[in-house]
């Protein structure tokens, strides 16, 4: 609110360098935006065009024979709503916990006073670089009772080293006076964290939130391996296997002995690409809807002075 007049004041005395830069920036970004939008547009028009034409690559700029059967088919997948609920739950809970843990650990690991701080920090960061393999991971999960449990979606990703590093780097850029002042006022570690740190590092928290929300939303590998209870299937998993159903026909072909009935079922499944495209649109759409919420934290600059004062 208070910034507006200042920006206008600056605008008046525009430098020629600034103008050239503006023009170039606009051109370059418009080009990049086009390159990114077009494939998506391409996917979209193919989902509403005649499936035969789209399979043959005939739909490139304008939709042909518009229809919505692909969307109807996807919406007819059984228990889609239940899967949607699970996906939303895991995304919301998972994101909240991950953001909290990343912010808190990112802050705590800047504390020089912590007992063996470096050791613990390195212990966490190192996990980015190794992977035990799926068999021991699976057995571990089963042993601690996370197999077929909702928490298998949440707990393993709560501590994510990459996000912690991001947060820590950001916290380090916060002027030390800020926290020192709070400490002097008698605020404890937790109080400083909630009252001083969180408001200042909001942009990076928004970033972590987007990253982890999208990762949660898109994840299906964990369902694949660790969940056989159909009530816990996520939206992504349900859609994933719907796609795979259409494309894993090789084995079907190699094993079946009745050619005629096989031929019929193959022809039915031959529109896998349209299905895949439709699923992409269906999955990305909710993400785009919640995007603006996060974006609000990017366009407003932080006024550290304001926090200080």
């Amino acid at each position: 609110m208070s910034k507006e007049p200042k920006v206008k004041a600056v605008k008046k005395k525009q430098d020629p360098v600034d103008i050239v830069m503006s023009v170039v920036t606009y051109i370059v970004y418009s080009f990049f935006a086009f390159v990114c939008v077009y494939p998506f547009y391409y996917i979209f028009i193919n989902t509403i065009s005649n499936n035969d034409l789209s399979a043959r690559g005939k739909v490139t700029f304008i939709p042909i024979d518009i229809h919505f059967t692909n969307y109807v088919n996807v919406s007819n997948i059984p228990s889609l709503m239940d899967a949607f609920r699970i996906s939303v739950s895991r995304t919301v809970i998972g994101t909240i916990l991950t953001v909290f843990a990343s912010a808190f650990l990112g802050y705590m690991f800047t504390k020089e006073t912590m007992w063996h701080r470096k050791l613990w920090y390195r212990l966490v960061v190192a996990t980015m670089y190794f992977n035990a393999g799926i068999i021991p991971f699976f057995i571990t999960m089963k042993n601690i009772g996370l197999y077929n449990s909702f928490w298998v979606y949440i707990l393993p990703t709560v501590v994510s080293p990459f996000y912690i590093v991001l947060c820590k780097t950001f916290v380090e850029s916060v002027p030390a006076e800020l926290t020192d002042a709070a400490m002097l006022d008698g605020a404890g570690t937790i109080k400083t964290f909630t009252a001083v740190i969180i408001p200042v590092i909001k942009p990076i928290l928004a970033t972590v939130a987007i990253f982890s929300a999208v990762a949660q939303w898109n994840s299906f590998q964990d369902t694949l391996l660790l969940v056989s209870d159909t009530k816990l299937f996520t939206l992504q998993f349900t859609l994933y296997q719907y796609i795979n159903q259409a494309s894993s026909l090789k084995a079907l072909v190699n094993s079946s002995t009745s050619a005629a009935s096989l031929a019929a079922s193959l022809a039915h499944a031959a529109t896998a690409t349209s299905i895949r495209m439709t699923v992409t649109i269906v999955v990305v759409f909710p993400i785009l809807l919640v995007y603006p919420i996060f974006q609000r934290y990017f366009v407003k600059g932080i006024m550290i002075g304001a926090v200080k004062g």
Partner: peptide, 13 residues
């Protein structure tokens, strides 16, 4: 088996 339910219930398949 929903998330709100206790985790112990879900661990037995």
């Amino acid at each position: 088996a929903a998330p709100a339910a206790s985790d112990s219930a879900a661990s037995t398949d």
